[in-house]
Amino acid sequence: MRVLIIEDDAALGLFLQKGLKLEGHEVGLVTDGEAGLEQALEQSPDLIVLDLSLPKRDGMEVLEAMQGRLTQTSVLVLTGRSAVEERVRCLNMGADDCLLKPFSFHELTARCRVLLRRREQFADPTLRHGDVELNRMERKVTRHGRPIDLTGKEFALLEFLMQARGRCCTRGELLKEVWQMSPDAGTNVVDVYVNYLRKKLSAGDPADDAPVIETVRGEGYMLGVGSGRKPVSRVGGVFGLGARAHA
């Protein structure tokens, strides 16, 4: 899950970032409301952890500005004020949950998991990447509207790459998440299945020759620009991933 923390207390922000990264999330951190809103609109993260007392633009203003613009993003508000009216106002303005400071990190992560579950339940079942569409409910994949017959593992691999939305997925990560194997397992099963997928995605139609899955040399695989969608630019972004060398 891609999480954006908007918290002006540097120490608290860093600890939350560290902890959520340990939980396996991709976490960005900004320390004022203006930058927070800008990053939120640009990156459309899955979850925003938003403090209310912020410089430049406070949390309420950020919530107000995001209303109706980030329909796929959940917002968890952090507040140090115990007034019920404030929390009700936040929820009315689009926040999905409020957490009163001081709180336990375990409670924060538990609430994040609840929001993620809720989000997945109501999410659009179709993942799209350029001309490729994957319907998670019907377990169907199409390219240019042409149905593509995939095995269970091929489907799971493509689904994982599409969920990563242009982020590079390492072989270890794919082994762990798609095959439930140790990331250090000495096997080339990922490369073999990527090959199968590439062949199936490009077979039969000359318009489908643009590569959907690109190799990131020495690291892993990502969905590429070839299928009509630019990978998410992370250079200098809050999620802190650097530029990659493409094969």
């Binding site: 207390d9 120490a11 608290l12 902890g19 007392s53 140090g80 400071k101 001081p102 709180f103 990190f105």
Partner: peptide
């Protein structure tokens, strides 16, 4: 006093989270 109490919540939350994250490892 409410403001000061609010200010106190920041380091208290940071303290609790930091120790819990340290224990996670």
């Amino acid at each position: 006093l409410c403001d000061k109490l609010h200010d106190l919540c920041q380091p208290l939350t940071a303290l609790q989270c930091r120790l819990e994250i340290g224990m996670m490892h």
